[in-house]
Design a protein around this nucleic acid. Structure first.
Lengths: 209, 209
DNA sequence: TAGATTGTTAATCGATTAACAATC
DNA sequence: TAGATTGTTAATCGATTAACAATC
């Protein structure tokens, strides 16, 4: 399939989450305006996204919840699943591991890394922690393709380089340091200070109006 | 000043961070291509953003680091500063409080909230934790205008409502639940599962190419 | 049938990039 | 001067929204 727009992919993830809840409530069909309402966007946008992934609903009943869930799965997930690691076990790293625990079967955190030898002995929510100098070995051995970066900002750039060298294909960067990755490595994530400063700007502007 | 584009505000925050580092290194002037290089965007984009905020550099020396820092400050920050609270003291909430500690003088976390009575007695990195049913009182007393939401997904919608009622003007939502807020409340934040699934999609598509 | 809904094209809006005059 | 740089307009690209035909 042709590559989907960035924003559409984001919404597909949100659609699926909403649809999974619908399914748990034994809802079999859903209209575009219902799905739109659940995530607070417009029905047209839902229909256009669904058009882009080549699915069609029915005029009377809308979209089949099961079918849509499994189609989105075929688009986002791989059959064998992808493995993920968390680099840097501070509060944030731990939060992510715990939050993710058992959430998605096709996207599993299998390893954590930290420089602190104390932490290396531990297992966090079922995920073993390795010393950071074994990054390359463990990533290759386990076939990990995505890394979540939560190390201190000062070492982020260096670790980013190592991750690419180890064969990582996507990095979610939660550090404040901008990473320099090659063309075909996906780069995501948001820095919290920027998020907050953006909020501050809009709160300020709104107040002045 | 006319309202700035969303993306420009985001970049201003990043420019400032980069410029603060430059200042610490006693750099007094910077060219657009240098600043661009630091955050991996194009020089044109830097110049256009700077044009939008009405600053002008000099042909020979580029932009004055001090001046640019202070101008960005006047745009993003308010003179008296804004107060921020964190709602939900799990690993993530604690990570945010600690990470933020002392980072910005005009944007300070002054209160935390949690439903768990155990946590309510505690102080996290200098931030006192209040019971969640005192949300409205404390927010009004302290004049808090921004909330960072890290509660469990199931209660996010309800807490979101309460926050608006308490007079919060901006919410950074780190829960997976889409919030329904009124027109003039700023809404930001990203869900980690969506971020990761987006990465998964692009890693997958890339691999197939 | 009338009303509600989907699917899709065209129009609009917003953000980035190309191009280039002006200047030191 | 020649080369490097800024500031800015116009063109392009990408995403959202409006409009509407088709259908049950």
């Amino acid at each position: 399939m042709k590559i989907l727009p960035d924003k559409t992919v984001e919404r597909l993830s949100q659609y699926r989450r909403a649809l999974l809840i619908c399914r748990a409530e034994n809802k079999t069909h859903i209209f575009s305006h219902e799905l739109a309402g659940l995530i607070h966007i417009t029905p047209v946008q839902v229909r256009r996204d669904i058009m882009l992934i080549g699915y069609t609903g029915t005029l009377r009943k809308g979209y089949d919840v099961h079918e849509l869930i499994s189609l989105i799965g075929r688009i986002i997930d791989t059959e064998e699943g992808l493995r993920v690691c968390v680099v840097g076990i501070g509060d944030l790293g731990r939060a992510i591991i715990r939050y993710f625990k058992g959430k998605r079967t096709k996207l599993v955190i299998t390893a954590a890394f930290d420089a602190n030898p104390e932490k290396v002995k531990c297992v966090y929510s079922g995920v073993p922690c390795y010393p950071i100098d074994q990054l390359e070995t463990v990533i290759k051995e386990q076939g990990i393709s995505i890394a979540i970066l939560t190390v201190p900002g000062e070492v982020a750039a260096t670790v980013g380089q190592t991750l690419e060298k180890a064969g990582i294909k996507g990095i979610i960067n939660y550090t404040p340091t901008p990473l320099n990755v090659s063309e075909n490595t996906y780069l995501g994530g948001y820095d919290m200070i920027t998020s907050l400063e953006k909020a501050a700007y809009f709160v300020k502007s709104n107040r002045e109006m």
